[in-house]
Design a protein around this nucleic acid. Structure first.
Lengths: 256, 256
DNA sequence: GATATTTCATTCATCATACAAAGGCAATTG
DNA sequence: CAATTGCCTTTGTATGATGAATGAAATATC
């Protein structure tokens, strides 16, 4: 998988026109990461040598090395000096990292992450809702409500509805004013997107979801911690149902 | 701050003319990160140019660039092409990343992270304890109990006690078999270490802590979810007390 | 004189090359 | 056959050159 456009002015090496040098760092990093996730480079195995990677992706060793450094800093690989670079087991990956989640993409399903995230949401979101009821500013509530309006107006459009739902929950975590909760927004977002996409039959439940989300907004306005927590729990029950549908729709990971 | 040993052969082995090239990547990365945390490079400001950083840390641009790439991948800085590298606001730092927490070190206090972590623990640990009561293997419980024994035997030695306590909670999260909870072990660990260190007056409370931790182990053995949750909550009350003492001992961050 | 355009210097992004250091393997030697 | 030693491979670091893009200074235009 060559990441450059590859036209390199075959007429002659930088004779008069100069060599094209597009910005490829991000692409290369993503390409290697995707290949790792796609099992092109199997877990526990060695990556090709840096020089081989140069050829494979069509870039210089500088770019390859900086990409590997990024991947290493996120736990995907571990460079052993003069031996090679090995792919780390998935447990060591920083799955809370936004970029890592993007690289994993839909394969988040195969990592059994969705149930983990749902369990974690049950622990976190009711708390976050309580904190938000206590500490949310008017701006925070306004942002949450804007997301809710987008949910309401997205009737039928699952893509728009998903984006709005994601924005709603991210804004709620932000309104909790707890840095830890905020940082978890990325993984909740990833799980939510995939879960909703994979269960588009659940579109019928959107009305119900809109209603509950609305009640949460009102609870925040009234600074009613108990009601906020209660709404959050009900949302999670809906999310659990969506997830169950998504699991049913999806090819069983054990069968792979 | 030069990170090399700086003696450059002046009389040492490899006589004729070889240049010593120690492995400095990690040191340089940590040095830059520490300087950022120490406000040597203020938030929102520009880092020196790459060439200036080479001089300052005594390494080549290769090393500097790979270090910056790592820092960028963790949200500490953002490289803007041909303009410079700016230090990101703290909200964008990946504070859930183990390395970032190590770089922050005791300054975790100034980030108001400790209360956030305690709130997050209140949300997470009781849940994790329930899950552990359901799903912990005998090995999991054995590991937790080993940590408990180390706590019991560490009477008086606050350092050993802290390490054991950290190990206990990490093992508990691991026993929950939830990948999200497990990934949060690093930040809980960082907060716990600092909190206990800063409140060494609380040594008197160790006996009480040992007792509660023991009860949690027994609850896990009996697979008693309710008791496990209850123990976890009591531990957090103790942690809250320790934190309050630590805050009192510490110079007020607002005064800085 | 004020504004829009151009040029230029600065700085990052990439490439290419060279060498040092150290792990792994194999040949050598006892 | 076993232990040592030396070589080869591969990563780690250094260096210089060049492309590319941004911000600001200089210029041109109205």
């Amino acid at each position: 998988m060559i990441v450059q456009e590859q036209d390199e002015r075959s007429g002659g090496p930088d004779g008069e026109g100069g060599v094209r040098r597009p910005r490829v760092q991000k692409n290369v990093t993503r390409a290697i990461a995707s290949d790792i996730c796609a099992d092109v480079f199997p877990i526990g195995g060695f990556l090709p040598t840096e020089n081989e990677l140069c050829l494979r992706y069509g870039v210089s060793r500088t770019v390859i090395r900086e990409s590997l450094k990024i991947l290493e800093s996120k736990g995907l690989v571990r460079g052993r000096s003069r031996v090679g670079t090995v792919v780390c087991p998935k447990e060591e990956w920083n799955i809370l990292d936004q970029q890592v989640l993007e690289w994993i993409g839909p394969r988040i399903f195969e990592l059994d992450l969705l149930t983990c995230v749902l369990d974690a949401r049950r622990a976190i979101e009711p708390f976050a809702a309580e904190f938000a009821a206590e500490r949310a500013t008017v701006q925070d509530v306004a942002e949450i409500e804007r997301a809710w309006e987008r949910m309401r107006d997205a009737a039928g459009d699952l893509e728009a509805f998903t984006q709005a739902d994601v924005a709603f929950h991210a804004a709620l975590l932000k309104a909790s004013h707890n840095q830890i909760f905020m940082q978890l927004a990325s993984i909740i977002q990833a799980a939510l997107e995939f879960s909703l996409h994979a269960s588009n039959e659940a579109a019928a439940a959107c009305d119900e979801a809109v209603e509950i989300h609305k009640r949460l907004v009102e609870a925040l306005r009234l600074r009613d911690k108990t009601a906020a927590r209660e709404c959050s729990l009900q949302m999670l029950d809906l999310a659990a149902r969506d997830l169950a549908i998504a699991v049913k729709n999806h090819p069983a990971p054990s069968g792979a």
